[in-house]
Design a binder for these strands. Structure first.
Lengths: 263, 263
DNA sequence: GCTTGCTCCGTACGCCGTACGGAATATTGT
DNA sequence: ACAATATTCCGTACGGCGTACGGAGCAAGC
């Protein structure tokens, strides 16, 4: 018994065949090494499928994008989708990259503060327009042209300001992560209102008595005081728009402070 | 036909009955208004159910907690779970609050910088220990004792440092949101490695050739340079632990800078 | 013209949350 | 003591999900 490869698998050294999802992601760039394919032409294009899926996700959330529902919307049988896309996960990756690719990236303003804010605000706006982006998991490490272009643009916002390469990456990650967390909070707030059919405030009123009864015997001096002040200021239990402004100001101040120590 | 209430529904003005999930969340606090209940005793307690669900979620993720699987683990028929808990969503809310309640909150150190860091690190550690916490959605606005105690503790870290009430709330939200986004990145990184069976680095190597082919014709000067520098520094495509340190330093600096303008 | 590879699709499997109703059981009201 | 009632536990069933598998028909390559 040598260590030779399994004879059932022919001698081909299996040069780590590339992930098929990668070709799909970059389909518009690689494009046309197309020799005509056998069999019936596809009635639709991958873009048709992805666009329909994005529209469904915008309307119904990521969980609302089912292979069955999507197929019906496209006039296909469910299993026919699998000739366009290997599976649902890959479809989601394509949706994400399509969204990233479509957005026209605004020119970066002058001034580091404004540039950093722009990076965060663009991401925040995108996550608000497509809340399902925040629910996406499991598409790492698939990297498409939309994500690549976006990263390049984000880095250009912090190029030449005095950060080293690693710090540039970390700064972008910090801004994007923060914008995501704000959008996440906003999305959760909206979901709560939508699903309960009543506003947050109404729920608190309806349950204030029970909450008071139940919390008696515990002391929440700070939470009571701060919660009330925040509630009055927000007219809600939270106000993600204000959290964005507050947090962004602090983060940008922090980055500027780092650079200030160097000049 | 007057506007009188539906006679099928007796005159009771329906005083907005409290959410049953609230009583369940606060079951240990309200506790014993217990008159003995009719029918067979419950074989288990709500805590048994919630603890088993937490154990399942720790091992298999939130999606791995199915009512069927949980019931089997507890020796019950699936539908019997619904005598303990109104539904899966409520169960998840109980799991979250149980986790929050269990963690012993460390004493807050001296010095604002260390206090702010502690708030973020506690949340980060918790999200790492229970990655499914980040997948929880739709449990707003249910508020349990664990969440209330936690909020009180977080506020105590920023009490009396010169922030007004609304700023206290926003500062805590900023720290917690940031810690969540770091933990989210870390969790995604681990998931990618687990599900692909190979390390991130191995995937990039296996697909480097295809990526190079596919990205030719596009220019990514910054992404190429920074990505390489970061990759070498991290020995991976990302390094959430470093992102935590970098981002936390910037955020704390930003908060301190805000306070510095006031003294 | 035969073979091959492709598209499209019907069926089926094993999951999911949970609505519904019935049998057994323990307390409550008489 | 006995009937009424409330509660637990559970079997069955419904409508959803992703997708494996195999077959039918079509277009290109030999």
């Amino acid at each position: 018994m040598t260590a030779s490869p399994d004879p059932a698998e022919p001698a081909a050294p299996e040069p780590a065949r590339p992930d098929p999802a990668l070709r799909l992601l970059w389909r518009h760039v690689v494009a046309e090494d197309e020799q005509p394919r056998r069999g019936p032409r596809q009635r639709l294009s991958v873009d048709d499928v992805v666009d329909a899926a994005i529209a469904m996700a915008d309307a119904e959330g990521l969980a609302g994008v089912s292979m069955r529902g999507l197929a019906q919307r496209l006039g296909l049988a469910p299993m026919s989708l699998y000739t366009y896309v290997p599976g649902r996960n890959e479809l989601v990756a394509l949706m994400v990259d399509q969204v990233l690719a479509r957005r026209e990236l605004p020119p970066l303003p002058d001034g580091l503060r404004a540039r950093l804010e722009t990076v965060a605000r663009v991401h925040h706006a995108e996550a608000l327009a497509h809340p399902w982006l925040l629910d996406v998991t499991g598409i790492r490490p698939w990297l498409g042209p939309g994500a690549a272009d976006r990263y390049e643009w984000q880095l250009s916002a912090v190029e030449g300001v005095g950060l080293d390469d690693v710090e540039m990456d970390q700064t972008v990650a910090l801004l994007v992560g923060f914008a995501s967390s704000i959008a996440h909070a906003e999305h959760e707030k909206r979901r709560a209102e939508r699903e309960s059919g009543q506003s947050e405030l109404a729920w608190w009123e309806a349950n204030a008595e029970e909450l008071g009864r139940v919390m008696s015997g515990r002391e929440y001096p700070l939470a009571g005081r701060v919660g009330q002040a925040a509630g009055e200021a927000y007219q809600a239990a939270s106000d993600p728009a204000r959290e964005l402004e507050f947090g962004l100001a602090r983060i940008v101040d922090g980055v500027l402070a780092l650079l200030a120590t160097r000049s």
